[in-house]
Design a protein around this nucleic acid. Structure first.
Lengths: 194, 194
DNA sequence: CGTCTATTTGAATGTACTCAAAAGCGGTGG
DNA sequence: CCACCGCTTTTGAGTACATTCAAATAGACG
């Protein structure tokens, strides 16, 4: 059950058997059904989530009520709203399950206790934070320098298979284009393959 | 000379006189002339920079040789290429001075020593890292949901006065539009004011 | 003062959007 | 198991935002 998260952590720091046991005991397993809400806009994000099985997505509505997907979290990824989590402020975006999903989640007090017991986790979460920053920076750069078509092909490289699972509407909202336009792009790609 | 950086750090953590002195001694002051290069593409980023006076910008060239500005760092801001700094890898982007600029910079070994002496700085830099992430996330969201015109007005709110200092070409490269189009936007704004 | 680069502006173009209608698809209940 | 409902996808036609290219003008700097 907890192998994946331990593997994930041990990619960056090494853990004793005891550490590993304590870490696992600090996380609570939880299941979400497809389309179930994990976090709602305006709610405080009480947990950070590690996805074991399934897929979560973060999204928000802009001033024109248009939905934008900011990230997907598939198996082996961390997600949540860090800003809301650390500052105890209402979340500006929502998180929902795109499939039946199993996560391990940890609350802020649990995390604090965990830092006390296993101080090297400070380093681990700093690295996770850094990687998150780098990924977000990449996304900015990619948006600045690439057309919708290029962003679409990169999406498929970055999340292979997700295209089959996630509705086109949602993929479009991640790419920053309309579903109608994504439909046209796909058509173009299909005809180019033949 | 070092008041600004100490002020900046003490916004998040408290420092003893000794800590403060040791911190200051770990940073090297350096000046860059207007248009001087701070970091070149392909070079390893050996320092993190705190801007005392002036303005730095980070930018890269995309596959079509088009320049994109990823961030400005004005007085009181931190900059550098963290990815290159921590992984010791060649930088994908460059940093240059837009004005005569005075910085305090710190190398990786110096920073490590500093963490030993003043462990609470771990917390400080984690907060800086977090804020960086939040700012970058905001930028992604803003790009997804706003037109060039809106982005331009927000730029002016976020960096008041910078418009007068920085060439339009560079501002356009930050906004993700062409200089020609920014010129048209500005014209429109001017005529709207009368 | 001359040179070099940045800015402005016009005309034509392209990328992506809007609106609307039709077709497809998935889940639910009879 | 099929029929229906609601939502997603497709597609056409028209449009808007932003770009390209080029030429003229303005500004900066040695």
């Amino acid at each position: 059950m907890g192998e994946l998260i331990l593997q994930n952590i041990e990619r960056h720091i090494s853990l004793s058997k005891d550490d590993a046991r304590y870490i696992l005991s600090s996380f609570n397993p939880k299941k979400f059904n497809k389309n179930e809400s994990v976090l709602q806009v305006g709610e405080c994000c009480k947990y950070e989530y590690f996805v074991n099985v399934g897929c979560l997505r973060s999204f928000y509505l802009d001033q024109n009520e248009i939905e934008h997907t900011t990230m997907f979290a598939i198996s082996g990824w961390w997600t949540g709203n860090l800003r809301s989590f650390v500052t105890n402020s209402p979340s500006l975006f929502a998180i929902e399950a795109l499939q039946d999903t199993e996560v391990l989640r940890i609350s802020n007090p649990q995390l604090e206790r965990l830092y006390q017991k296993v101080p090297t986790l400070n380093k681990f979460f700093r690295i996770i934070l850094q990687n998150n920053l780098f990924a977000t920076q990449d996304r900015v750069m990619h948006h600045l320098s690439s057309s919708a078509e290029t962003r679409y092909t990169l999406f498929n490289k970055k999340f292979p298979g997700l295209e089959k699972i996630v509705s086109q509407k949602i993929i479009a909202s991640y790419l920053g284009i309309t579903p109608a336009y994504l439909s046209r792009l796909r058509k173009k790609f299909k005809s180019a393959q033949n």
